[in-house]
């Protein structure tokens, strides 16, 4: 006869499991999902504090006629289209090179390439700003090499300013993505490559017919993470160019910050804007899943 007071092993494990999950879940719900829900409600209001009223889609309609918002949207999409593919290709190439076990000083190169990720966003941005200053290192270098005749005012021209931001982003995030590729490459069974070599596949074929298909889930992951990161760009543009010149590098996040804290506070409108970013990230990720994930 079973003891009436003792629980079954299965139930007991269940309770232990829940006990582990519940504290973290409560924290995530209170500090993450609850504010998201509140912000969603906020985006349908006008006014603030005690005077807030529901006003339907007013804030979302307003976005359609906001030229500064459109400028910032075009800016981040430009970064997305031009910088993310280059960065991911570079990360993939570097990971592939560093995965070669005949290469000497591999650990050193890996550390060197990953090191930028350990620097704070603000400090590296400030370093980039001074590198590309009118009397900065880049101009001095190019002048001494006789590449240019007079110093370029990098941060004062819309396109060169965008270029500096993209260079900075690439420097900071390539190593980060490379680590994902590297760990995925190390999980590919060496015997697959050996078999391919025996079958007569050259390096080119091995890379495109074996490596790339096997890395697909990771390429997808890094692409989605980079898309997400670029749409939420803030630290780099604030610290390198402060959104200038003529709003040419203004990111959506910086505009949201301005609307909330620098201008007369417009929290509901800013909340609506952040939900548009949220939806955009969702759509772009879904598109990438559609294209990339054929499982």
């Amino acid at each position: 006869m079973a003891k009436p007071t003792s629980l079954k092993l299965h139930t007991k494990q269940n309770i232990v499991g829940w006990a582990f999950v519940i504290p973290a879940s409560i924290l995530i719900f209170t500090f993450f999902f609850y504010p998201i829900g509140k912000a969603f409600l906020l985006s349908f209001q006008t006014g603030f504090g005690a005077n807030a009223q529901y006003a339907g889609l007013v804030n979302y309609k307003r976005l359609l006629s906001d030229n500064t918002f459109k400028t910032s949207l075009v800016n981040v999409l430009t970064f997305l289209v031009l910088q993310v593919p280059v960065m991911l290709l570079l990360a993939l190439a570097l990971a592939y090179t560093l995965n070669d076990h005949k290469l000497k000083f591999r650990a050193l190169f890996r550390t060197a390439l990953f090191l930028p990720c350990a620097t704070s966003l603000v400090s590296y941005s400030i370093v980039f700003r001074s590198l590309f200053a009118l009397d900065g290192f880049m101009n001095a270098l190019l002048l001494n090499l006789n590449v240019i005749q007079s110093p370029i005012n990098w941060l004062a021209n819309p396109w060169t300013a965008k270029l500096v931001i993209m260079l900075a982003l690439t420097w900071r995030w390539t190593g980060y993505n490379m680590i994902f590729f590297l760990s995925a490459l190390q999980n590919i069974d060496r015997s697959i490559f050996e078999a391919a070599i025996i079958d007569g596949a050259n390096g080119f074929n091995r890379f495109f017919k074996i490596t790339i298909p096997m890395l697909k889930p990771i390429i997808l992951l890094t692409a989605i993470m980079s898309t997400n990161g670029t749409l939420q760009l803030f630290d780099e543009t604030v610290n390198i160019t402060n959104g200038g010149p003529t709003n040419a590098t203004l990111s959506i996040s910086q505009y949201i910050y301005r609307l909330s804290f620098q201008y007369s506070p417009r929290f509901p409108y800013a909340a609506a804007m952040s939900f548009v970013v949220f939806v955009l990230v969702g759509i772009l990720s879904a598109m990438q899943m559609r294209v990339g994930d054929k499982r």
């Binding site: 700003r129 001074s130 200053a133 009118l134 009397d135 005012n153 941060l155 004062a156």
Partner: peptide, 8 residues
Amino acid sequence: VQVNDWEQ
């Protein structure tokens, strides 16, 4: 002359 930030 125009410079890019306060330190400059």
